[in-house]
Nucleic acid binder design. Structure first.
Length: 602
DNA sequence: CGACCGACTTGCCATTAATGAA
DNA sequence: TTCATTAATGGCAAGTCGGTCG
């Protein structure tokens, strides 16, 4: 109930803030209704009948369709076996997808080429298919050049031309970018349908290069309120279906043809619907905080269970808790070979009785989500080590490490420990806990705002490292690093110079003390001090930059760190929240801003 | 159970916009 | 004011997890 009240007050505040002119009373009623719904959500044990409704009225304009294909001008041609060849528009469009990618590395991959060519052939006319037999005889270079030039032209547009484009975009946003949900105008996350193109999966994806088809209105299901105006399909077309399902949050959906999975048009994170869900997520993580000691005790007991499945489960949860691994659902072989905790294979770990001066070391090396490599050497409890040895006994490298458990079973166990608990809650919980601990540790009074921000970034970075959030090193990294180092060098020289002058001033003052010499001395002292501070700041920057080379902070900031921690920290240490959250982030975390008081601790 | 599906969150990257140095 | 760097945004792929069905 206490948390529920917190929730209500938060949203009342937001509604007051957002709709200063609008009727406060009706807003309160509105948000109170939302909060009351959440109250029943909190009581998981009471069943789930009442919490399935997501809205009571919903109206929108439907998705925005990408522009139709514009055929190439007559002087731009595809060549087959050295001969120019005019293609049908549909076939030509597919060619342009490939031609645009020509200087990308993946067009040189065999899988990409094969997938592309076989999907392309499917779409060719009979005549074209008869003529075009192998990809290696296809010459897209003229088309490629054409698009390079076009993009160059776009870059060189005048200010006025760019302005026109900008206005066009904002008109589009105004028309399609918002919906009316329970009487509130809310921003839509992705109102534009995905244009056709070639699929590029992450990592070694077996489907890379396949054709992602153009979405027709006849593929799209519309979801809106029973009494709302039904969005008009493009002229001469009709929707696949129009439904009025208020147990889901999406406005439109279609099946993408690569995996045959549904895709959705949904609300922006700034919306109440998403914000409420986000807030709930952190409340669940905070409930785990209360329970985690007993859960840890439990899984440690499981390490010595007579049952293999219990031992495996105990070790798996230990990994999820200690290392913030993902659950690791099973995957089909139609996607890249990546794993999480439950899908780890024997080949992904190496056991070391001793390593780097530590006992019972486990070396992890596997590809996780998005084919990002997870490499880590961690000391584990002796009993865990023993168990791992047991798990890998008589197994081949490609066998599952945890062969007696699945994510479903694991989550079922967790849910029995605490309602709403699943594997991913541990990631949220550990991430937010880490942020809170690090902030408490790294922030001290007397720090400048810059230093505090650096501390925040450090804390943020600790979380990103825990969650293995990586990024490709920025292309300009070396250069910008060099620039920074040059600056530092220059500053050092300036300090040398200033010190020399200081020494001289000292000497002058000693030899012939006077008011003037004293003043000069003080001035020189100040100069040295100021320069040293500047140097320190630059070196701080250098460290920050270096440490951020391959670490991505955004994902954790957006998805794992309870905004209340950040907001409270900002207030407590007089750091303007805008220094930590940009506009978008402030919109997304509106539920936490202004409502969280400075004493909040996760 | 386990396969499958639907809905929703999480994740990295390319593009675009904003900012600051020259 | 222009150009180069950096930050914000949008795009969409790839996870998690609950539900259903045989």
């Amino acid at each position: 109930m206490k948390t529920c009240l917190r929730f209500i007050s938060r949203f009342i505040y937001i509604s007051a803030e957002r709709n200063k002119v609008a009727s406060f009373v009706s807003s309160v009623r509105y948000y109170y209704a939302a909060a009351a719904k959440t109250l029943s959500d909190c009581r998981w044990e009471e069943g789930k009948s009442s919490d399935t409704q997501k809205w009571s009225s919903l109206e929108h304009k439907g998705p925005y369709f990408p522009p139709e294909y514009e055929p190439l001008p007559d002087n731009i041609c595809f060549y087959y076996d050295g001969q120019p060849m005019k293609l049908s528009p549909a076939t030509e469009e597919i060619v342009t997808f490939y031609a645009k990618m020509l200087d990308h590395e993946y067009t040189s991959k065999e899988v990409f080429q094969n997938n592309f060519f076989s999907d392309w052939k499917e779409e060719m006319t009979k005549e074209e298919r008869k003529l075009i037999k192998t990809l290696s005889k296809c010459d897209f270079s003229q088309i490629h050049k054409y698009f390079v030039e076009k993009s160059e032209e776009r870059k060189n547009m005048t200010k006025e031309e760019k302005q026109v484009l900008k206005e066009e975009a904002s008109r589009l946003m105004e028309e399609y970018g918002f919906c009316l949900l329970d009487g509130h105008r809310e921003k839509i996350g992705n109102f534009k349908l995905e244009p056709p193109g070639l699929f590029r999966g992450r990592g070694e994806h077996p489907k890379m290069g396949k054709l992602k088809k153009r979405i027709q209105p006849e593929d799209v299901t519309i979801n809106c309120g029973q009494d709302s105006k039904i969005p008009a399909p493009p002229a001469g077309h009709r929707w696949k279906r129009v439904q009025h399902d208020n147990t889901v949050t999406w406005l439109a959906s279609w099946l993408e043809n690569i995996h045959g999975r549904p895709k959705y048009i949904m609300l922006n994170p700034s919306s109440k619907l998403k914000g409420e869900k986000d807030w709930q997520k952190y409340e669940t993580a905070r409930r785990l905080k209360m329970k985690v000691d007993s859960i840890r005790k439990q899984y440690r007991r499981d390490w010595t269970s007579r049952e293999m499945k219990s031992r495996q489960r105990g070790v798996a949860i230990y990994f999820i808790d200690k290392l913030a691994l993902r659950a690791g659902n099973e995957k089909d072989d139609e996607s890249a070979d990546t794993v999480g905790c439950c899908s780890l294979r024997v080949e992904h770990i190496t056991l070391h009785r001793r390593l780097d001066g530590q006992e019972h070391m486990v070396e992890f090396d596997f590809l996780g989500k998005d084919s990002i490599r997870y490499y880590n050497k961690v000391p584990v409890e002796k009993q865990v080590f023993k168990n791992l040895k047991l798990f890998i006994k008589h197994k081949d490298p490609e066998d599952d490490l945890f062969d007696r458990i699945t994510t479903v079973k694991l989550n079922k166990t967790l849910n029995e420990c605490m309602p709403g608990l699943t594997a991913k809650v541990f990631r949220t919980f550990n991430a937010s806990t880490t942020l809170q601990d690090q902030l408490n540790k790294l922030t001290t009074e007397g720090m400048t705002v810059e230093e505090k921000i650096l501390s925040y970034n450090r804390a943020n970075r600790a979380v990103a490292i825990l969650c293995n959030h990586q990024r490709a090193a920025p292309k300009t990294f070396e250069k910008s690093m060099q620039l920074l180092q040059e600056k530092i060098q220059k500053k050092k020289e300036q300090i040398e110079e200033a010190k020399k002058e200081l020494k001289e001033a000292k000497k002058a003052h000693k030899d012939a003390p006077s008011d003037k010499s004293k003043k000069l001395l003080e001035k020189k002292e100040k100069a040295v001090q100021r320069l040293s501070e500047q140097l320190k700041k630059l070196q701080l920057q250098e460290t920050d930059h270096e440490e951020n080379k391959v670490i991505a902070l955004g994902t954790s900031k957006l998805n794992y760190l309870d905004a209340c921690i950040t907001v409270a920290w900002c207030k407590k240490h007089q750091v303007p929240v805008e220094k930590i959250y940009n506009k978008t982030q402030r919109d997304k975390f509106a539920w936490a801003i202004d409502m969280t008081d400075e004493n909040f601790q996760f």
